[in-house]
Design a protein around this nucleic acid. Structure first.
Lengths: 75, 75
DNA sequence: CAACCGTTATCGCACATGTTATACTCTCCC
DNA sequence: GGGAGAGTATAACATGTGCGATAACGGTTG
């Protein structure tokens, strides 16, 4: 019902726009459905583990910083 | 409630055993949870789009035939 | 035998996803 | 202006998944 507070959506959208992809094209290249990318961007859901993997792969393929700073955690 | 009729489970299990992995290790290497691999093997669910991709990647990494013949379809 | 231990099987619940459908916003072109 | 099409937003429903727990099974070790 209520959207998530995370900014995944914004970051996914930025990534997508940097790559000049439509939601559908991005979904295709990530291996998910269009609705899923749309839901991320509009904050209805958050990418799953596996989806995050794909997103980071996509980032690396295009020489962009990954989306998950899970390693350098805080600080 | 009822298991799926697909043989994904069998094929996943065969793949896993060829690689000498436990369900947990395979889950780890695929980026999914142990329960998910277990559900595949026992036919409660079938892999999602994204999961299938990972499985095929795992196949290719080990020079085995991919699990999805979706391309060469009927022929 | 019983007591572990690694592995597997199953369940329940919350949440993510796939699919399909509808509607809205543009831009382009007549 | 009005239609057509691409891109997007949103919805409902079924299904897949993550997480945690519990149980069962097979070794092995005391």
């Amino acid at each position: 019902m209520t959207k998530t507070k995370d900014d995944f959506g914004v970051r996914v959208k930025e990534l997508r726009e940097q790559l000049h992809l439509t939601q559908e094209a991005m979904a295709e290249s990530l291996g998910v459905s269009f609705a899923t990318v749309n839901r991320w961007e509009n904050g209805w859901t958050v990418p799953s583990k596996l989806a995050l993997r794909q997103i980071d792969l996509l980032c690396k393929e295009n020489h962009l910083e990954p989306m998950t700073d899970t390693k350098r955690s805080v600080k």
